[in-house]
């Protein structure tokens, strides 16, 4: 059986430093790998000191408009979200369920651009909350990955989550992130083998994104039972904080996840709140986002009580 680890070894006769990223020596530890702590390091350390989990909130840029999106993101920070993920709307969101797909459609039809995403990052980072971009890979590559890393850093961005960029393909991106002192965040999944957990976590900075279930984004009645096991397995191979995403939509679920993870990531539920509030139903989407964010923020604090 050819394991992924075998894939990662350079073939015989192939010079070191070939396409296999994992063949490079794994950094001894993140403290050794970078001087100084990043904004994400700080926020996870502060939450840990308070005995609670970090709350990470996702909204796509440009939904329903760039300005309303910025208002919603700033409102959720005011309501207690610690870290913001700004989604880059993409034409082919293969890892997203219907709620985020629809929001991306609206944003793209509204003409949102990568520059608008960076402008959104800047407006949200001004609040002081560490702000990441969550993006499929092709828009970054098209923008130019060094330019993207540089412009993200200038906008005050703390890092980027790239769900369809595996560490094996990320050599240039990792170098660009290191140059700009932004944190690359990779994902682990319930199906990740121990070898892959080591590979992914050794290249992540800031935190590790643990997908709670096998599936696309979207609220679920129950967060996968495999999430707790996955967090345990991740902690066996890294000291990085572990944040759990996919399926969390209520304060109670946030509290449950905060009981075993360092961070709780909420996306689709916030998008739905914004969509419902600003949709034909009337009401105010930004207020709806703030209400849900406050409930979730109470949830991550309740877990420690």
């Amino acid at each position: 059986m050819r394991s992924q680890l075998a894939h990662d070894q350079p073939a015989q006769g192939q010079p070191a430093g070939g396409p296999a990223a994992a063949a490079r020596p794994v950094p001894a530890g993140r403290e050794a790998a970078r001087a100084g702590r990043s904004p994400l390091d700080e926020v996870f350390a502060a939450a840990r000191a308070q005995g609670r989990a970090v709350l990470v909130g996702y909204l796509p840029a440009g939904f329903p408009t760039v300005e309303r999106g910025i208002a919603a993101m700033r409102a959720m920070v005011a309501a207690g979200v610690d870290v913001v993920e700004v989604g880059l709307p993409y034409s082919d969101p293969t890892m997203d369920g219907p709620v985020i797909q629809d929001a991306a459609d609206v944003a793209l039809r509204g003409g949102v651009t990568t520059r608008d995403v960076l402008r959104t990052v800047e407006a949200v980072a001004d609040t002081g909350a560490p702000t990441l971009v969550m993006t499929y890979w092709n828009p970054v590559e098209r923008y130019g990955l060094e330019a993207f890393a540089a412009d993200l850093a200038s906008a005050g961005g703390a890092g980027a989550i790239t769900p369809d960029l595996p560490p094996e393909e990320a050599d240039s991106w990792l170098a660009a992130c290191a140059t700009q002192a932004i944190d690359p965040v990779f994902l682990v999944a319930p199906s990740s083998t121990p070898q892959r957990l080591r590979l992914v976590t050794s290249h992540s900075r800031g935190f590790v994104y643990a997908a709670s279930t096998m599936g696309v984004t979207g609220a679920r009645a129950a967060v996968g039972a495999r999430a707790g096991d996955l967090v345990t397995r991740v902690r066996e191979v890294t000291t990085l904080p572990v944040a759990v995403g996919l399926g969390v939509s209520t304060g109670a679920q946030a509290a449950e996840v905060a009981g075993f993870a360092d961070g709780v990531i909420v996306g689709s539920a916030l998008v739905r709140a914004l969509a419902t509030g600003d949709g034909e139903g009337g009401g105010d989407g930004v207020e709806a986002v703030a209400r849900l964010a406050a409930e979730l923020a109470a949830g991550v604090r309740a877990a420690s009580a």
Binding site: M1, Q4, P19, W137, L187, S191, A211
Partner: peptide, 28 residues
């Protein structure tokens, strides 16, 4: 392709982590 699925600078595996185990299983 080479052992990691590259045709020169093309190809590869740009998929969510959740699918890696299945792609490895399929390769094997």
């Amino acid at each position: 392709p080479d052992t990691s699925g590259h045709f020169g600078r093309f190809g590869g595996r740009f998929v969510p982590e959740a699918l890696f185990a299945a792609l490895d299983e399929l390769s094997a």
